[in-house]
Write a protein that binds this DNA or RNA. Structure first.
Lengths: 189, 189
DNA sequence: CCATAAAGCTAATGCCATTAGCTTTCGGCG
DNA sequence: CGCCGAAAGCTAATGGCATTAGCTTTATGG
């Protein structure tokens, strides 16, 4: 019988695909093993367990998000950059409904790769806000607001939390426009 | 042997207490049965299963949140009401870390109690925004933004997603102030 | 008092995660 | 060319949780 030829890399990548298909909470070692054509315990040769798998998925997703944000912001500034970054994040979440929630997991303090990815993602937003002349504590606060608003919107949308018939895309655009307004008036308040 | 004297009510209430203690995702029929001094399958006399338990918990939590929001807004208007509602929500989440996530679950279309509670909660926010002269689509969009921002902030905070040393309470206050700014300038944009 | 509905129990099944220990493949080195 | 060791993969066993079936017992109302 030939070997499956797995590596930690391929396992996590397939886990990401699976998570997108069945949902983040239904990502299970059993399902992953079945999809890889391997017995469940074999996965332990590549991953420490289900929690470690989720952790690795978090690193993967956070890295991807950081890249999306960075390239959305590239060559843009101010409101343009803000809109591009917000849309990039929401589209990533729509395209990868299983990966996106993994992004919420806080990096372990001893995982340099995860820490670096998270910092890249936050840094991309932070950089955009410097275009509004925000820095220091104000930039930190504004970054947190951006993350909260966009992440909250994505989460509520995914959970089906918006009941009314009003178009959700429009609401998102309005929210981002309101963020722009808030950032432009941040100091004078 | 005397009977435990459970009812669906007491079971859900104890589930809420347990969820707050051990976390929403660790709310388990096994743990709940142990805490109630009853064998696990006995719970099925009061609840259809673990999913139904989570659903009932969602109704309970949503009802509580609606009450908190309503009484926070009572007797206040404009920025005062906004700040009070935002704080009430965050404090509820801090006080009830296991119940709060249950609040995210979308009501089943055939559960009038859940639907009513969700509508009460959203209605309280909607009412506050009428104080900013927002109505119609604008009020819907502004309500969604409020929910997204506050919910996102709560979620990120609970997940330990804010790494930097900057004081989180301050960031929250700034965010709510920025929302106030955005709402006051909503039309002129 | 006693009959019955409901409360609670034990037993059994199935799924998932984890650990232990065995077998087999593959790549490098004599 | 063959062998040998590390790593890949397997089976078996254990334990936790959810669920269903079917039994026993407690209240309670007639």
């Amino acid at each position: 019988m030939p070997r499956a030829g797995l590596t930690p890399q391929t396992v996590v990548r397939e886990a990401a695909v699976l998570a997108d298909e069945v949902g983040h909470d239904r990502l299970t070692l059993a399902a992953l093993a079945a999809r890889l054509g391997v017995a469940l315990p074999s996965l332990y040769k590549h991953v420490r367990g289900v929690d470690a798998l989720h952790q690795k998925l978090a690193v993967l997703a956070t890295t991807e998000v950081a890249t999306e944000l960075t390239s959305a912001a590239a060559g843009r500034a101010g409101g343009d950059a803000l809109r591009a970054a917000a849309s990039a994040l929401r589209e990533y979440a729509r395209r990868h409904p299983g990966r996106y929630p993994a992004t919420q997991r806080a990096p372990a303090p001893d995982d340099p790769e995860h820490l670096a990815a998270a910092e890249r993602a936050v840094g991309a937003i932070y950089a955009i806000l410097r275009g509004y002349d925000l820095s220091g504590d104000a930039a930190v606060d504004a970054t947190r607001m951006f993350r909260a608003a966009v992440h909250g919107f994505i989460t509520l949308e995914a959970a089906g939390g918006f009941g009314l018939p009003r178009d959700i895309d429009r609401s998102f655009d309005e929210m981002v426009a309101a963020l722009d307004t808030a950032y432009r008036n941040w100091r004078s308040r």
